[in-house]
Amino acid sequence: MATTALPAPKSGSAVTVRRILAIIGVGFLVFFAFIEIVPFVLTVANSFKCLPAVQAAPQAFIPLPPFGISCQTETGSVRSATEMTDGIAFNPTTEGYQEVLRQNLGKWFVNTAVFAIWVTVLRLLFDSLAGYALARIKFPGNRLLFFIMLGTMMIPGVVLLIPRFIILKQLGMLNTYQGFILTLAADAFGVFLMKQFFESIPGEIEEAAQVDGASRLTMFFRIVLPMATPALTALAIFSFQGTWNNFMDALIILGGNPDLFNLPLGLALLRGAYGDTLRWHTFLAGSVITTLPLAIIFFVFQRYFVEGVSYSGLKG
């Protein structure tokens, strides 16, 4: 199928078959792209509506002035769908956002950022130190350590739920910032990624530096780390994204103290508290706030996201 750009085709019918296949292929692709994108577009649009309009059909998604309308009409009733939408256009309101911010969302946002930044910084440091030692320094137990780390990669996260709870309880670190951050401060995947990277770069520069008498530590921070920027970027993105979205560990470690919740935990428990009468505009506003920082990072560093995934895929 990848041969369309090649020299003179053999027969007319083969060309027709290829054309038809191409049309089917593109149709298939566009259909799925539509399905992947539409929920996000509608989420953003509906986060700016009053509750009745959120479930209305057809779905309005083009914002028109006046902006910032109130969901209370002059008579004190809730603004109905027809009062704020006109076909596919609607007058946006920020009441969903105001409501979710009254639910301590600001605090959770700060927590999430603090967790994500700490975990990312610690992982960059610890994973690259360990990855470098395993790749370059000969010491007894080097290979054994590497295999133990590889082994822990095979253990599914869910299996760690209970063990982590038990140990953090014993250490008195349940419902603390440190408990959550330290648990995630190094990961086998990161060590593996950094080790692979350090093995792929030539060792001559380090040898020269060693002859000049530089210690391993100086060499690591002055020479090796600056060369590792691509791998560090990929690792930073994975760590930040993973920690920002972390729900399961947060539930177990931080679930007992609403002041320490991160955004996913806060939203999930808020959903539980609301029961079945969900105030959708509020939840959609919360969803937008949770997703926005990662979306910005994604669009700025897109290349690294995709390269990182491809890299891990090829290595697997």
Binding site: F32, F40, A268, L284, S287, L294, F298
Partner: peptide, 18 residues
């Protein structure tokens, strides 16, 4: 196609519920 993978599973669950 990649965008959903960076989104929180909790957020996607809420969107799907809605």
């Amino acid at each position: 196609f990649y965008f959903p993978s960076i989104t929180s599973s909790v957020v996607i669950s809420l969107i799907f519920m809605w």
